[in-house]
Write a protein that binds this DNA or RNA. Sequence first.
DNA 1: AAGAGGCCCTGATAGC
DNA 2: TGCTATCAGGGCCTCT
Length: 287
Amino acid sequence: MPELPEVEIVRQSLSKKIIGKKINKVLVRNRNLRLKLKSSFENKLKSRFIVKIGRFSKYLILELENKSYCIVHLGMSGTIHITNNRQKNSFTNTSFYHSPNLPKKHNHIELFFNDMKLIYNDPRRFGFFQLIKNKIDLKKRFKNFGPEPFNNKFNLSYLTKYLKKKNKNIKSFLLDQKFVSGIGNIYANEILYLSKIHPLRSAKNLTKFEYEKIIRNSKKVLNNAIQKGGSSIRDFKNILGGTGQFQKEFKVYGRDKKSCKRQSCSGIIYKIIQANRSTFYCQTCQK
DNA sequence: AAGAGGCCCTGATAGC
DNA sequence: TGCTATCAGGGCCTCT
């Protein structure tokens, strides 16, 4: 599911709900997430206050008042919901309460606050919670990650230096978190479309102008997606159970055999498999 | 040592 | 209807 924009939406909405609140109780139903939860997990969170909710790349970072952290990754199918914890299954948001998509299975972790609880649901269990004891370790955790597209470090000299010596296609690099953090399969496809670059092009052979387009369009696509509340193609829900709207703006993702949305282009969108992932591109305007 | 490929897991959908 | 196969937004590990 979640690439940087979706995680940012969760961060923003969660911030409004649980900052300053105390975790009264921690309930774990399934410890076998991508990272197995240790037996000390509950006690390290219990009675702690949440002072801030940050985000790096596709990771949520809950900061606690004792300067430790809880990293949350949503994997492919993870969602976080906030509900009223007084009445069982009574959701604060009525549209969610009536939603047929109300999750029942796979609620693996619950954090109880005074007036509400946070529920982590993840059918595929590719996501995880990870406790980090201090700021130094937090820094270490992300030391091998490339900059986010919004970071000034993601600039022309960085791209040139990084890509010129390597032999891979540009799509693979956009998905490579060591190169750039936060882009996943949907947005990689959309960025290359906007940049009119064929996904199979060798990264080192792109022109300076094309590197600049990638930098510009990475920011643009992710910012637009955040503004639209993220993309919901199957699993993604915000914390009240609502869907994002950016999927309506997809130019290529999921548009196999459909016509190119560029007015001046009469091309068709093709789907290929690249590094085990679906790639969508316009045969005509992406060169 | 970069790069390709397999794998973790469940659920939705397509095809027979 | 019910089976099997395929695919899904991520990232880590292994092998060459």
